[in-house]
């Protein structure tokens, strides 16, 4: 083992161990807030792990979505929880110490430990020479319209998955709205520093989002990462205490939310009527079409994520 391998091995071990410890601490933390903080740290650590396993696309997605948005979502939820829970008692309610509870816990723990050991053996037993679909992807990459293999898989080879996934996102928002949304949070007084930060960052976020989108055609990046950065801009907007004008939260908002899915579906419908395979790209125009779809998807993803963070329900007559 040369020194490079050794350093890498230590690096990976530290990351892995850190992940396990952070996850354990985050979940076992007696205070929810601490748990969330540790979870955010866990997400950041995860993105380093992604980088280490040659998955920069995933690292980008993890940072944008996992670390950035999930953290904000969790913290916002925790703050709202505070309103409905008069004391913090239940949050750090002492773990029950009855005999039955303890037995239950230790049984669960030992069972899961057994599962973990079994999984470890299995993973070690997996064939080491499994090629996966890397070769197939590489062979068809030229016909896909983009040169980034991950984007080719996401938008072309398995574009149908992506369509469904866009819909999962929209559905989540629909679900939030169908619950009646959450009451608007009291507007905290504007803070000059924060306000300025948001004013400076938002154009940069827009630009970066577009950059990630563009990069996605040939390098790590793509609609999801771009959308997440866009969504982060929306979150920042909301956190800075800015109210979006009434007229943008009705039909305009809805149209933005459905732009991606409906363009995708329109394409699907076209292929159906034209008697082609579902979501079959014409080879010459695949590149342009993918970019168009990605632009629409980015807009929708960004808007949806921001709307999920705001979670206030639509501001027109229904749902209010």
């Amino acid at each position: 083992m040369d020194r490079l391998t050794l350093v890498l091995w230590i690096f990976d071990s530290v990351t892995g161990l850190g992940l396990l410890l952070l996850a354990g601490w985050a979940l076992a933390s007696p205070q929810l807030f601490r748990g969330i903080i540790l979870f955010v740290a866990f997400s950041l650590m995860m993105s380093i792990a992604w980088v280490r396993i040659d998955a920069p696309d995933v690292a980008l997605a993890e940072i944008a979505i996992g670390a950035g948005l999930t953290g904000a979502l969790l913290l916002a939820a925790l703050s709202r929880l505070g309103d409905s829970e008069p004391t913090q008692e239940s949050m750090n309610r002492p773990i029950e110490r009855s005999y039955r509870a303890r037995t239950f816990r230790s049984l669960t723990a030992s069972l899961l430990a057994a599962v973990a050991v079994a999984l470890v053996f299995l993973i070690l037993a997996l064939p080491g020479d499994s090629e996966g679909l890397g070769a197939e992807v590489a062979a068809s990459l030229d016909a896909s319209g983009v040169s980034s293999p991950v984007t080719a898989v996401l938008l072309n080879f398995r574009g149908y998955d992506t369509l469904l996934e866009l819909l999962v996102l929209l559905l989540a928002l629909l679900g939030v709205w169908s619950l009646g949304g959450l009451p608007a949070q009291p507007v905290s007084p504007a803070v000059l520093v924060l306000d300025t930060l948001a004013r400076i960052l938002i154009p940069v976020l827009l630009l970066s989002s577009a950059y990630l989108l563009w990069a996605g055609t040939h390098a790590p990046g793509g609609a999801f990462q771009a959308g997440a950065v866009l969504g982060a801009a929306g979150v920042l907007l909301s956190l800075a205490g800015w109210q979006v004008r009434q007229r943008y939260t009705g039909v305009t908002l809805r149209l933005l939310l459905i732009a991606g899915p409906s363009l995708f579906l329109a394409f699907a419908l076209y292929t159906i009527v034209a008697g082609q395979s579902l979501l079959e790209y014409p080879p010459q125009r695949a590149g342009v079409m993918i970019v168009l779809l990605e632009v629409a998807a980015t807009l929708s993803i960004g808007t949806t994520l921001a709307a999920l963070f705001v979670a206030e329900g639509p501001r027109n007559k229904e749902g209010q």
Partner: peptide, 19 residues
Amino acid sequence: APDPVPHAMIITGIVVAVA
């Protein structure tokens, strides 16, 4: 080069997870 298909799947999974 790493197999891109699982990466694409994970991105899908992450989006589903955040939603």
